[in-house]
């Protein structure tokens, strides 16, 4: 069952240098109980996308297109109605647990607030829900934790608190924006394991935003690769790693340090992502693409089109045989610099 449907979403920020279109015609769907990974580097628009869904954009931003949660349209919803959804139907976990909890309020206060903003329960009941929530994310002696302040907890513990807080009102959609990037490797493993466990229990649709294909492989069902405000490839997770279709995805896969073999030079994508103030005409990846065709620079940007039987979609002008050949090479880790 499809829970979240984003259709042709455009998010534009007014800046002093002119409008910046951070999300440019993005469409995607996530089913209940599924995890969609959105992969991209800084400036790809993945965070603007998540904030658009949450309705947390600054006033300088405008959103066009459609975001539907179940049957409900979120774009154009009044502030009051959006607020009622935030934290109850749609919840979010952020990147840096060090700065995401209010330093002057106790954990308990912040959790109880989250409950009471959306549920008509007494303080005592809210407290009980908060304790259960902390226990569910594996925090030892949760009752004592309620009295502590964020600075008294480790990074991993704080991220657990953030996750508990997001799940308190049993949201239907959970957006996790780089939830493990700021954590140590072993702590990251703990949090990813927690997310895998919770996925089975809460039955919410999860949108996981990350720059790390490793994290995607660990927890996602489907993947959307974003580049310069657009989705360039969408695929079920196994397909993406077995038969990647877009040259940018190939580049991302090949630059993963864990995949390179000894004695082999790390693959690098030359250059840097384009400025969204004046994006290149045509395909936005064309200036950095090794297999670029003349048409890539001049023709209007390609839109996502289905390829193969595995359910992949790609926005690329290369012919299918080239993509299959190159994709297989990159998937097998045979690329050379």
């Amino acid at each position: 069952m499809t829970l979240l449907t984003v259709d042709n979403l455009r998010t534009t920020f007014r800046t002093d240098d002119g409008p910046v279109c951070a999300v440019d015609g993005v469409s995607l769907t996530v089913g209940a109980g599924k995890v969609l990974g959105i992969v991209g580097e800084s400036g790809s628009g993945k965070s603007a996308l998540s904030l658009s869904i949450m309705g947390l954009l600054p006033e300088s931003a405008t959103v066009e297109g459609s975001i539907r949660l179940g049957e409900q349209e979120l774009v154009g919803l009044s502030k009051h109605d959006l607020r009622a959804l935030r934290g109850s139907e749609v919840a979010m976990i952020f990147q840096d647990p060090m700065t995401c909890l209010n330093p002057v309020l106790t954990i308990g206060w912040q959790l109880v607030e989250a409950v009471r903003l959306h549920q008509q329960v007494s303080r005592r009941e809210a407290r009980k829900l908060a304790i259960d929530g902390l226990a569910a994310v594996g925090i030892p002696s949760p009752e004592d934790r309620l009295r502590t302040y964020p600075h008294e907890l480790s990074g991993g513990m704080r991220q657990r608190v953030m996750i508990a807080m997001a799940l308190l009102n049993r949201p239907r959609l959970l957006i996790a924006d780089e939830p493990t990037t700021a954590l140590d490797v072993t702590t990251q493993a703990q949090i990813l394991e927690l997310m895998r466990d919770l996925r089975r229990e809460v039955d919410a649709a999860i949108v996981l935003i990350t720059h790390d294909l490793g994290v995607v492989a660990e927890v996602c069902d489907e993947v959307a690769v974003m580049y310069a405000g657009r989705i360039v490839e969408r695929a079920p997770v196994d397909e993406l790693f077995a038969q990647p279709q877009h040259p940018y995805t190939w580049g991302l896969l090949a630059s993963l340090p864990g995949r390179s073999r000894t004695g082999q030079r790390l693959h690098q994508i030359p250059g840097a992502p384009p400025s969204l103030l004046s994006p290149p005409p045509g395909c936005r990846f064309a200036p950095r693409c090794a297999l670029v065709l003349d048409a890539c620079r001049t023709d209007p940007a390609p839109s996502l089109a289905p390829v193969g039987a595995g359910g992949s979609q790609v926005a690329c002008l290369l012919d299918q045989s080239t993509r299959d050949r190159e994709g297989a090479r990159y998937a097998a880790g045979e690329e050379s610099a």
Partner: peptide, 12 residues
């Protein structure tokens, strides 16, 4: 444990 904790970019 450090090695084992790294996410592996291969879903299978």
């Amino acid at each position: 444990a450090l090695l084992s904790a790294r996410p592996i970019a291969d879903p299978k």
